Computed example of a mutant assay.
Amino acid sequence: MFLILFDCDGTLVDSQETILHGLQVGFAEVGLPMPSRREALSIVGLSLERAFAQLAGADHQDKVARMAAAYRAAKQERRAAGLDFDPLYPGARAAVDRLARRDDVLLGLATGKARRGVDHMLRVHGLEGRFVTIQTADTSPSKPHPDMVLRAMAETGAEDLRTVMVGDTSFDMQMARAAGALALGVSWGYHDRTALLDAGAGAVIDTFDELDRALSAQLGWSVETI
């Protein structure tokens, strides 16, 4: 059995605008200036507290808890108002559905999002039931710690070299390799191709149309059977 793990933000869903809004709320809560867009988005994939800790800097670590709490409260308010919508990237749904139809594949998620955010994403896009293992920041240390991948392999019984982490950041690649699993980068997210390859990606794809062939190269599948 093969296990394919997907990151969420920057891999399956384009969440940059809603993430930026939440970060702005967090910085405003404690009266700190918002970082540049590029710097702010560089932390996507980390757990929320770790992301704010990195962005706020050493002199403002005492404010991190308030910033994260403000971010979460804003998220909940926007979801309740129907404003917190992150679109799927082109081809994401078809790719997930195609892999889910295979008898020799299990799908999972490994994300820095909270489980509440993951459930919202799955519900909004009608993707419930596709992922047999869901690992989040609620139960694991922040990426790049390997715990999410290790938990997913333990839950499904998948072997490390039959497991691939698909993600858009160096944190995803480092997490996968630290767990002994394979890593596949996507270029449409938050870290560039060079960063992904340097962090251990076996390959980097530019569209979801390239996913099957890339998985075939890493796992030895016949392309015709995908």
Rank of each mutant, 00 (worst) to 15 (best):
Q135V: 13
R93F: 00
Y71Q: 04
G157M: 05
R162C: 14
K75R: 12
R93P: 02
E29S: 13
Y71R: 07
F2T: 03
F52A: 02
R78F: 05
A95Y: 00
A137K: 00
E49C: 10
R72C: 10
G185F: 00
A81S: 13
Q24L: 03
P141M: 11
G82M: 03
T133C: 14
K143T: 03
L106G: 13
T111M: 09
V105S: 10
E159Q: 13
H191Y: 00
G22S: 05
R102N: 02
M173F: 01
E224S: 13
L106H: 14
A217M: 12
S170T: 07
T18P: 02
T139Q: 14
P33I: 06
I4P: 00
R37G: 12
A51E: 03
E128R: 04
P33T: 09
S140A: 15
A53F: 10
V64R: 06
F52E: 04
E49N: 13
P146S: 03
K75H: 13
V223Y: 09
T163D: 08
L107P: 04
R38L: 15
A74G: 00
G82K: 00
D97I: 02
L41E: 02
E17V: 03
L127N: 12
I205R: 08
W221D: 00
E224N: 13
F131H: 12
R101C: 09
T207C: 01
V118A: 10
T139C: 08
G157F: 09
F208M: 11
D103I: 03
W221R: 00
D198A: 15
T11L: 05
A214Q: 02
R102V: 10
D209Q: 14
L20P: 10
K143N: 11
D160Q: 14
M148P: 01
V149D: 08
I205W: 07
V13M: 14
A203C: 10
R177H: 07
P33N: 02
A183K: 02
A95E: 08
L88G: 08
L182N: 02
W188S: 07
A217K: 12
A154W: 09
C8G: 01
A80Q: 14
M153E: 05
A100N: 12
M1L: 09
Q61E: 15
Q54R: 15
P87R: 07
D119A: 15
G22K: 02
F85Q: 07
A179D: 06
D206H: 13
Q61W: 14
L83T: 01
D104N: 12
G45S: 08
L150Q: 14
H191T: 09
